[in-house]
Design a protein around this nucleic acid. Sequence first.
DNA 1: CGTACCTTTGTGTGCGTACACAGAAAGGAT
DNA 2: ATCCTTTCTGTGTACGCACACAAAGGTACG
Lengths: 365, 365
Amino acid sequence: MEKQHDRIRIKDIAQLAGVSVGTVDRVLHSRSGVSPASRRKVEEILQQLNYQPNMYASALASNKKYNFACLLPSHSKEDYWDDVESGMFQAVSAFSDFHISLNTFYYDQYEFGSFVETGNRLLESGADGVVLAPTIEEETSRFVGKLRQSDTPYIFIDSNIPRLSPLAFYGQHARKSGYFAARILHLLAQGSREIVLFRQIYEGRLGSNQQLHREEGFYEYMKKHCPDMKMRELNLYVKQPGQDEMLLDEFFRAHPHINCGITFNSKAYLVGEYMLKHGRKDFHLMGYDLLRRNIACLKAGTIDFIIAQQPTVQGYNSIECLCNHLILKKKVKSCNYMPINLIAEDNIDFYFDAHVCEQSTTILS
Amino acid sequence: MEKQHDRIRIKDIAQLAGVSVGTVDRVLHSRSGVSPASRRKVEEILQQLNYQPNMYASALASNKKYNFACLLPSHSKEDYWDDVESGMFQAVSAFSDFHISLNTFYYDQYEFGSFVETGNRLLESGADGVVLAPTIEEETSRFVGKLRQSDTPYIFIDSNIPRLSPLAFYGQHARKSGYFAARILHLLAQGSREIVLFRQIYEGRLGSNQQLHREEGFYEYMKKHCPDMKMRELNLYVKQPGQDEMLLDEFFRAHPHINCGITFNSKAYLVGEYMLKHGRKDFHLMGYDLLRRNIACLKAGTIDFIIAQQPTVQGYNSIECLCNHLILKKKVKSCNYMPINLIAEDNIDFYFDAHVCEQSTTILS
DNA sequence: CGTACCTTTGTGTGCGTACACAGAAAGGAT
DNA sequence: ATCCTTTCTGTGTACGCACACAAAGGTACG
């Protein structure tokens, strides 16, 4: 615990370059008012010494306030998006020393107009950085175009649209995740040659792109490893629970031997609760996302495995990334795939404590 | 990006309490020299306002140097402990603004005297915080006794000895992890009624406690879910590769129908490479830890699944925890189980980017 | 040669906290 | 009342950086 100052300070650089700290500061922030000679000399020494600014002192000195905003599908409590949001607010509180705040904007996922209208409200709020779920490619493209005009960085969460080159993306590699899910379901099938895919249709549309890509990965595995597997699809409609139950009844009456299924959205509990109600313990089910009702099924034994994609972490990391970029001027990683985690009843308890954060690679801006 | 100071500062509290910042500072650090009346008044306001110190300003002001030390089994490159160590150094660099340093001390895992001797050298080095792997309970007890005398916080990594009440523990719940492994291996067995457990004997002893606990969890699952499963154990000896190959030859000659096995240490590659050499693709193998050779087997298809325990994260979090405790005076969580992650070839790419860090719960010291 | 003006450079102050030190108040002994 | 402790409290400086402002140097032109 001895006192010491071994780190290079601006003062040290100034001394070595034979200029004042002010000049060094101007070079570091590439501001005007420095003679070419001085600039060159300072830059030279800067390179030699690999100067790392003390980010605490830096944040302390420039005590600005940063307003972030997020644009998410409107959601209820215990939804996937609720976890994402909670992660973001965790980060806001963790980095509260940087004077950041977060405004939330919600749009109706199934109405294009809503996205546009909400997006405009966000733009008016004057955010310094934005996190959004690019569920609607066309409208997202127009939206980020406006953000670009004001040089506002934006981060994509959950799914990615690389051509719109966001500052960063946090989400799962959906296709590979479906591939992995297939591997596990294949094991669960235990030689059975038939599998059912439960799909959720909402307002006539099949949920998200993520869901589609998971299916792709799933089919890719099956085609490669067991081409003779028969895959049936059953569409459910969420909004009419009575109808869904009828559809399930009907399906299992028609295919009584099928003992294995998967959902590629977060609504596995629809099937899990159905099995629980009908006392079917022999059916093997997989799904996505650790919603409360999914967890209940997992513990009750009607869902075997859940693939988690750490929504909280995605939210947390998005905000952290904005801080790193805007405040600490660190270089951030642009494509961040979340781990594909397989959760059973046995290991679920050790999943929630943890949250992932990106490796910190400090680079001068 | 407007200027603003909405956070409560020491100055604010001083003003409200009608004292000076010096007095508030004394109360905050529970130092002497404050009249009972002043102390009471300050504490009252402190509670009302839920004051959160600006840790950046705090770290900046008290620019002390902290020396940490770790006491690990000696290891080679690409070993499990090497990843732990690398995580620790990542943290040291991430928190370099706090002026921390880390000294490493290695002991021979299989020689009690070595632990004692290395431990004494560590004590002499005058560390402010220690991270150690408590592989030898008896000697660890004596060692932490001495640390306690100087009030030096210590963190257990990999395995835990709760009665020695470390500041924190980072590691996997070994029994549950074995239980989970059994569930997956059970699926892999696909109805086969015989399984082999490969064990590594080293200097006449069976590796670590962790290894034993995993076996316990494994047997617990099997007893519960498939009591008629026949479990064979095959001891290997690591140091004599020729002999191990002979033992494997012998075993598979005696049990040609066994197609499923697991190791509870990080040496699954011994078996995986054997299978590769003999061109056996039908054997299903599981193991622990993502060593380079294990990963190679995973990609070659002779290891089906690996259970990862994020050694890098364990190391990183240990150091982070010491910083939180010593420097930021945050309250730290004492028992931190790592997630139990199942890794296949499909999802391994998304595992390394990520590292877990604990949730930050700022509490006044 | 002086003034105006621009470019370049240096200095000073503040961010919120820690800590050393000085000063004030209170009490006791002479 | 004076002096000396012993509490107790306020002030000042430092931490490393950002930014505003002042000062210095140079050039152009009357």
